[in-house]
């Protein structure tokens, strides 16, 4: 079970990132709990300068851009192994 957080105030990029992350998780048959973090104070608790950010199991894996589905899948895979 993973916790995946999407950091961003609800812009188009954040929605696209969530879409990609959800698809990657379901493709890998991984159950994950998705949370959208939209409050600036909560977002900036993580070490990022610009949104959207992707956090898997409390680790910030990407920020400021939309990662490719392949790399999101790789991060999820890695998080499953270390978990």
């Amino acid at each position: 079970m993973l916790t995946i957080k999407i950091l961003g105030p609800g812009c188009a990029n954040c929605k696209r990132l969530e879409e990609i992350a959800r698809k990657a998780a379901s493709d890998l048959n991984v159950t994950a709990e998705f949370t959208k973090v939209t409050d600036y104070n909560d977002i900036l608790a993580y070490d990022l300068v610009s949104t959207p950010g992707l956090v898997i199991n409390e680790k910030l894996v990407s920020s400021g851009r939309i990662p490719s589905p392949a790399s999101v899948a790789a991060w999820i895979d890695e998080a499953m192994k270390t978990a």
């Binding site: 812009c11 600036y40 104070n41 900036l44 990022l48 300068v49 610009s50 949104t51």
Partner: peptide, 8 residues
């Protein structure tokens, strides 16, 4: 958003 980021 960037301003908020930089300031905070």
């Amino acid at each position: 958003p960037l301003f908020a980021g930089i300031y905070k």
